[in-house]
Amino acid sequence: MTNTLVLDVDGTLVDTNYHHAVAWFRAFRRFDLTVPTWRLHRAIGMGGDKLVAAVAGEHVERDRGDELREAWVAEFEPMLAEVRPLEGAHRLVSAAREQDLAVVLASSGKRRHVDHYLGLIDAADVPSTSSDDVAESKPAPDLVEVALRQVDRDGGRAVVIGDSVWDCDAAHRAGLPVVCLRTGGFGEAELREHGASAVYEELDQLRADLTDLPMA
């Protein structure tokens, strides 16, 4: 049996959450809409299919949803060159594989963005999912479920690793335990309130506990 790590990407392996918040702020401003960046940051981690309504209301989603998502892509693309891996990202993935854990990435991001991040952490051969693979993104469980189908678990157990309450909610709906990092800017208390069994400050601390992670 092979146990599996289902890893979130944005905010967990690469430092993008604040780039995303700024890109969304600028996208809304294109349509003379102002959404406070603190509110946008709180929504980062859910997919763009849900974010517009969550931060601006169903009427904005209905009237401008697709245009806003297109504007977000246009605002975020120039920032890709600024994105850097979080300290320990490559070491975590390498250590997990050395310990015979299956690793799969479950990201709400666009496929071309995910592929870029894989290059940054030197993990181009790691199986991954993106928002292009599912009808609904986080906090729906779809990404986690699709990710699990990409690895040969042979009856093994799995755990989700993320950085946001949306990762926690997706894991819960998929029936899996979740461990979180504070690298996305969410507080420990709220992550635990959403079901995180452990919360780490950085990836190297998590790597040291790989053999002790809760799995189901």
Rank of each mutant, 00 (worst) to 15 (best):
T2P: 09
N3R: 02
L5R: 03
V6R: 05
D8E: 09
D10L: 00
G11E: 03
V14M: 05
D15N: 12
T16S: 15
T16N: 06
H19E: 13
H20D: 09
A21L: 04
W24S: 03
F25V: 01
R26M: 05
A27I: 01
F28E: 02
R29T: 04
F31V: 01
T34V: 14
T34R: 10
T34A: 15
V35Y: 12
P36V: 09
P36H: 05
T37S: 12
T37I: 15
T37C: 10
T37M: 13
T37E: 15
T37D: 11
L40H: 08
R42A: 15
G45T: 01
M46L: 13
G47K: 00
G47D: 06
D49M: 07
V52D: 05
A53P: 13
V55Y: 03
H59C: 08
R62M: 02
D63E: 10
D63I: 00
G65N: 13
D66T: 13
L68I: 13
R69N: 12
E70H: 06
E70Y: 00
E70C: 01
W72G: 00
W72Q: 07
W72R: 04
V73F: 02
E77C: 00
E77Q: 09
P78Y: 03
E82K: 07
P85S: 09
G88M: 08
A89L: 01
R91V: 10
S94L: 15
A96D: 15
Q99F: 15
D100T: 11
V103Y: 05
V104Y: 09
L105R: 10
A106Q: 08
S107L: 09
K110A: 15
H116E: 11
Y117L: 01
L118M: 07
L120W: 01
I121H: 00
I121A: 05
D122C: 02
A123V: 03
A124F: 00
V126S: 03
T129D: 02
S130K: 04
S130R: 02
D133E: 08
P139F: 05
P141L: 04
P141R: 04
V144F: 02
V146D: 14
V146N: 09
L148R: 07
R149Q: 07
V151Q: 06
D154G: 15
D154E: 14
G155W: 05
V159P: 08
V159Y: 09
V160M: 14
I161R: 02
I161P: 03
S164P: 04
V165Q: 08
W166L: 01
W166R: 00
D167F: 01
D167C: 12
A170G: 11
A171V: 09
A171C: 12
A174Q: 09
G175P: 13
V179K: 13
V179M: 13
R182C: 09
T183H: 12
G184E: 06
G185D: 10
G185P: 05
G187P: 04
G187E: 12
E188Y: 02
L191W: 06
R192V: 12
R192S: 13
R192Q: 14
R192C: 11
E193L: 14
H194T: 00
H194E: 05
V199G: 11
E201A: 10
E202M: 01
D204C: 06
L210P: 07
T211A: 15
T211V: 12
D212Y: 07
D212G: 14
D212L: 12
L213K: 10
L213Y: 09
M215W: 03
